[in-house]
Amino acid sequence: MLTFIGLGLFDEKDISVKGLEAVQNADMVFAEFYTSVLMGTTIERLEELYGKKVRILSREDVEQYPGWIDHAKEKNIVFLTGGDTMVSTTHVDLRLRAQDAGIGTELIHGASISSAVCGLSGLQNYRFGKASTIPHPYTSSRGRTIVSETPYDTIKMNMEKDMHTLIFLDIDKKKGYMTVNQALELLLEVEGRRAEGIMDNTIAVGIARAGSPEPSVKAGYVNKLKEHDFGGPLHIVVIPAALHFIEAEALVKLAGAPPEIMYSTED
Rank of each mutant, 00 (worst) to 15 (best):
A208V: 05
T35S: 13
T85R: 02
G256D: 05
H136N: 03
T145Q: 01
V37S: 10
G104E: 15
N25I: 03
F168D: 04
E191Y: 06
I203P: 01
K253G: 01
M199G: 05
M163C: 12
T139A: 03
T42Y: 09
L57G: 09
T35K: 02
F168R: 01
L254H: 06
G192A: 10
V217F: 05
A101W: 10
M28G: 03
G211Y: 00
I146R: 07
A257T: 03
R193T: 02
I203M: 06
S16K: 07
K175L: 12
S121E: 02
P259F: 06
V62T: 10
I198F: 05
A183R: 02
I108P: 08
I134E: 06
K73W: 10
S58P: 09
A72P: 08
E106W: 00
I15W: 04
V222M: 05
A72G: 11
T150E: 13
P135K: 08
R209P: 05
S16R: 09
S264T: 14
I77S: 04
G119R: 03
L2I: 05
A72L: 11
S121I: 03
Y263K: 15
R209G: 04
Y50D: 04
N76Q: 15
E44C: 00
D267C: 11
L188D: 02
Y177E: 13
I167P: 07
I236E: 09
K13M: 12
E74L: 14
N181T: 09
C118T: 02
S121T: 03
E189S: 12
A131W: 07
A31M: 15
D170T: 00
I207F: 01
R193P: 01
V23I: 12
T3S: 14
P135I: 10
K73C: 10
R193H: 10
A257K: 01
E60K: 14
